[in-house]
Amino acid sequence: MKKSILLFALVTLAGASFAQKKKITTSATVNFDATTKLDALPKAENKTAVASLDTKSGKVAFEVTIKSFSFANPKIQEHFNSEGWMNSDKFPTATFKGSITNLSDVKFTTDGTYTATVSGDLTLHGVTKPVTTTAKIVVAGATITTTTDFSIKVADYEVNGAAIGAGKVSTDPKITVSAEFK
């Protein structure tokens, strides 16, 4: 009986340690802003991204379903998901896998605001390219909030469409990713 209780306590303690190490959320937000002087409508938001943060190794990742981006104009959403643009039937997700390169500067056990450099690979439209960005990490008790933004060149990811050439959609849209881990 004592061995069973000891084993249960060790498993519980190991589980609690793991929970503190790797954080996951299914409600991260990814915003896409491809507005130009000619068109203020190519903006979208996706509040169903999956994100993970390993506070020990510094590994970070997110995955977003392309069809879950919501635009104010349904016609833009239709174009965004079409074969000539994101082709979301063929390429249903976008992913990022990377690491915090200055992990020693971020104290996940101490409340505060930290600046992290994140480098990794963004896969979008079937193309993978390296991305390096700066992230703001806020630690408040058991909650960790992360926010970053970066721009990409749509041509690098083989995304094209008539509106890009016409100047209605930015050739280098801004992407903002935010997540809250508890």
Results as ranks from 00 to 15, higher is better:
L6R: 05
L6N: 06
L6K: 05
L7V: 09
L7R: 04
L7A: 10
F8G: 15
A9T: 09
L10F: 05
L10K: 02
V11T: 12
V11L: 12
L13R: 09
K22S: 10
A28W: 01
A28N: 04
N31S: 13
F32W: 14
F32D: 01
A34T: 03
A34G: 05
K37V: 14
D39Y: 05
D39P: 07
L41D: 13
E45C: 14
N46A: 11
N46M: 08
T48A: 12
T48K: 09
T48W: 06
S52G: 05
S52M: 07
S52H: 01
L53Y: 00
D54N: 09
D54C: 08
T55E: 02
K56A: 11
S57A: 11
G58N: 06
G58R: 05
K59N: 10
K59L: 10
V60G: 02
F62M: 03
E63D: 13
S68N: 15
A72S: 11
A72W: 10
N73D: 13
I76V: 14
Q77V: 05
H79T: 11
N81G: 07
N81Y: 07
N81L: 06
N81C: 07
G84C: 08
G84R: 02
G84Y: 06
G84N: 11
M86F: 11
M86R: 01
N87S: 09
P92L: 03
T93S: 10
T93F: 14
A94Q: 04
A94W: 10
A94V: 03
F96G: 00
F96Y: 06
K97Q: 13
G98F: 01
S99G: 11
S99D: 10
T101H: 07
L103K: 12
T109H: 13
T110I: 13
